[in-house]
Design a binder for these strands. Structure first.
Lengths: 126, 126
DNA sequence: ATATGACCCATGTGTAGTAATGGTACAACA
DNA sequence: TGTTGTACCATTACTACACATGGGTCATAT
């Protein structure tokens, strides 16, 4: 598995990592069920911080592309190939776009939309 | 019509102005159809910039609380009292809240929601 | 002992957006 | 000429957040 991280690229490092792992799965360079390098080891190989790799892993696990099994390490999810094609961000962007388009139809200011958005995001209970 | 602007208040000046004009209408301190001070004059009285007052007026007109008639000045909208109670922001907040709640249900990160939001807001053509 | 993922504390840098300010200019009227 | 709302140019201060980094700790296992 050859992963290349470009620090000069504007794409966030953790995103670059996610993309390349997904592509490796899609192109059969890693098989479902196979073990992935540990967070610390991969961070060391790529000269990244643990947290950066951990963030990529965490998001990949949420997307069911990989599975973390605690002390046993991290593995490619059985249904990884299918889940790689499911783009969560795309669905979010589309759904959000429709909602915002409706606001603009009612001639709501972009400023007001941003303020309302900020309020909603900050007034959560968790 | 007594309007008091508090510079030390965190509420934006234009928003303070909007609120107080709306309240003046609701409490019958200005009648529908009555003339409002001109932008420049009100800015002078309250020691605000023209643009700040103009912004408040522009938004109030969009909400059909006031009517600007070009060189003839600005007047309280005939249906001002009804339109004052219609809170556009509330509808936006509610609608946006539902959408975002759905995202969180799908365990989408707040970061991702914010990024998607930023993309949608910036990728418009006007 | 050693390694795993996960969690807490925190800092620094860069970007983006808001709010408010100023100046200048315009067409439409009295 | 003077006033109306409106439009454009611009800058300053402030806030919020993303990203990445660092140190430290924890339970769970081999």
């Amino acid at each position: 598995m050859e992963i290349i991280i470009d620090i000069d690229n504007s794409v966030p490092l953790f995103a670059q990592l996610m993309t390349q792992i997904k592509e490796a799965v899609l192109r059969d360079r890693i098989s479902p069920g196979a073990a992935l390098p540990s967070i610390r080891q991969l961070a060391n190989d790529l000269e990244l911080n643990n947290k950066t790799v951990a963030k990529a892993y965490r998001l990949l696990e949420r997307d069911s592309v990989i599975q973390t099994k605690g002390y046993r390490g991290t593995f490619v999810h059985p249904d990884a190939k299918v889940n790689c094609t499911v783009d969560l961000n795309e669905w979010v962007t589309t759904k959000l776009g429709e909602t915002i388009a409706a606001f603009r139809e009612s001639s709501v200011t972009d400023s007001e939309i941003r303020i309302a958005f900020g309020n909603v995001m900050n007034s959560r209970n968790n």
